[in-house]
Design a protein around this nucleic acid. Structure first.
Length: 538
RNA sequence: GCCAGCGUAGCUCAGUCGGCAGAGCAACUGAUUUGUAAUCAGUAGGUCGUCGGUUCGAAUCCGUCCGCUGGCUCCA
């Protein structure tokens, strides 16, 4: 259909497949339909799909003939002794390890979904190809169910719901990636923040507040200026001194720690802060509340003795589990992010310290019987981490809590405590968030709950609606009663019929509707309509 | 940042070949006083994202910038 097209790679992915193409033709959504028609024809032909094993030289010849540059590059990287597998169906030839279906007729239900740009081999310095995404199932029912799920995900989109429920906005005049929390969104955030603070106090954290800017020198000491500069807002000059907006809270907590001499008896010291940070994120990556430029981390830094590390990690894991459960995330997966031993130049710190830290994280996971997967190369430059992925109501995984051992900053800031032996010792530092950031967490919660927040988080918990204006005063009295109990209640005193008021409350996903008419007023009662929304939609 | 697409009323969207700017919902006004998912009628609301170009004439064609969307790369 597009003769000058060269093939990139085309693997199967979790929910389908994609194929990358280099072509002078720019694909349009209409093309997808045309390609699907062509696919249908090929399926109907029921062509045999054959696998040939050839030598590397033979393979090279085949792809050179077809001027398949990308395939040749892939071929070059395959070991020369090993036989190469090539698949053919009709006039189509591809380099692929397989397996493939034996006949094109095996392909049943499929759909092409979208077009996107993608760098060749994921490298932004290489050419950009056009990627077509699609999905395929054994039968129409499977495809229909999958498409229904995609629709459900669309309905849950926090950007859509954030607008519909008036929770937040991002203002073009204000700047991209900067979130405005509207009154209802602010209530949700406030409840979560209060809960967070209370839970941290209970567990022995000290809560602090720190500034939003600091002198450039501080960021040089911390290493951010060298390692993180590209993600930071440009310096501003105040009284001939350069200041930077903070991208992280760690240096500030360290300064508090450093403010006086600490004894081994003082440890652990745990500073928690809902710290607002700003990071320069490239414009193309911004996404609603999930990827923004200014955000508030539920941050904490734990300073402890090496012998306390494991216990502290366990306590953080417990807190994390408790928090996730509270928000209805019953399933989560722990990843132990360790460094790539072949790539030590990208990490700071002694081998021995790294090993100790990785072992401590692993022991903590084992102590709580948490299953985990080791993610090689996913450590931060300053230390290994436990990264937790949480599964939402529709089965998607989100980056959640992160617990990082920091092997760099204690050194750089030369912090210490006085041990039992009267000597200075280096404390171990843990850097962690349990929710991540307020923006990403609440954005995720909106999708998790599909906007129907549980009672404790609902911006409006109860709406009282009189059947007619004759019960307005009674409705106000009832509402005042709820208000006295500390519940968030509203009255709908509009002239609309009760059906309309119920519909409105339903759209706004208010959990309790209290309806009062002549009968209720007479008997001094109320009638309650409680909406239980199904979180698991699919 | 890169590739592609998009930007029309508060929201969702229509607007044919370049020829007077449209609908539904929401808002407002009036009537209606209602019993568990939409009462009726009327009114108002837009520099068609921005700046520039082509043209007798631009929402429409071309360019620029801004923003958004789907991805890529990166990330909490």
């Amino acid at each position: 259909m597009f003769p000058d097209t060269r093939l990139g790679i085309g693997p199967a992915i979790e929910d389908g497949f994609y194929y990358d193409f280099d072509t002078s033709h720019g694909f349009t959504p209409e093309d997808l339909e045309k390609i699907e028609q062509e696919m249908k024809r090929i399926v109907k032909e029921n062509l045999p799909v054959t696998r040939d094993i050839v030598s590397k030289d033979e393979a090279r010849k085949i792809f050179e003939e077809r001027k398949a540059l990308f395939k040749l590059e892939l071929l070059d990287e395959l070991p020369s002794e090993e036989p190469i597998s090539i698949y053919r169906q009709g006039e189509f030839i591809d380099l692929c390890a397989g397996p493939h279906v034996p006949y094109t007729g095996y392909v049943k239900a499929y759909k092409l979904l979208s077009i996107a740009g993608a760098y060749w081999r994921g490298d932004e310095k290489r050419p950009m190809l056009q990627r077509i995404y699609g999905t395929a199932f054994m039968d129409q029912g499977g495809l229909d169910a999958h498409l229904a799920k995609l629709e459900d995900i669309k309905r849950r989109d926090h950007r859509r719901l954030g607008k519909d429920l008036d929770l937040f906005s991002i203002e073009e005049e204000g700047g991209p990636g900067l979130v405005y929390w509207h009154p209802k969104g602010a209530i949700i955030r406030e409840i979560i923040e209060n809960f967070w603070k209370e839970e941290h106090r209970k567990r022995g954290y000290d809560l602090v507040y720190t500034p939003h800017i600091a002198k450039l020198g501080l960021w040089k000491v911390s290493g951010h200026w060298d390692w993180y500069k590209d993600n930071m807002y440009s310096p501003m000059e105040i009284d001939e001194m350069q200041y930077l907006l903070k991208p992280m809270n760690c240096p500030f907590h360290i300064l508090i720690y450093k403010g006086k001499t600490r004894s081994y008896r003082d440890l652990p010291i745990r500073y928690g802060e809902l710290g607002t940070v700003y990071r320069y994120e490239r414009s193309g990556v911004l996404h609603g509340m999930l990827r923004v430029r200014g955000f508030t981390q539920d941050d904490a830094h734990l300073f402890c003795r090496p012998d306390q590390l494991e216990q502290q990690l366990i306590e953080v894991l417990d807190l994390t589990g408790f928090m996730l459960k509270t928000f209805g995330y019953d399933e989560y997966y722990c990843m132990l992010s360790v460094r790539d031993p072949n790539d030590k130049a990208n990490y700071i710190g002694e081998d021995e310290v790294w090993q100790q830290a990785e072992e401590a994280l692993e022991r903590a996971l084992k102590a709580r019987n948490l299953k985990y997967q080791i993610d090689v190369g996913e450590a931060k430059f300053y230390g290994p981490a436990i990264d937790i992925k949480i599964k939402d109501a529709v089965g998607r995984l989100w980056q959640g809590p992160t617990i990082q051992a920091d092997l760099n900053l204690p050194e750089r800031f030369d912090i210490h405590y006085i041990g039992e032996d009267g000597q200075r010792h280096r404390p171990v530092m843990i850097h962690r968030t349990v929710l991540g950031t307020m923006e990403r967490f609440i954005g995720g919660l909106i999708e998790h709950y599909a906007g129907a927040f549980p009672m404790w988080l609902s911006p409006v918990q109860i709406r009282v609606m009189p059947v007619s204006e004759k019960q307005s005063d009674y409705a106000k009295t009832v509402a005042a009663g709820f208000e006295e109990l500390g519940l968030r209640v509203e009255c709908d005193l509009g002239q609309d019929k009760i059906g309309y008021k119920i519909r409105q409350a339903q759209i706004e996903k208010i959990p309790y509707m209290v309806i009062v008419g002549a009968r209720e007023k007479e008997a001094n009662t109320i009638s309650v309509r409680h909406e239980v929304w199904e979180i698991l939609a699919v």
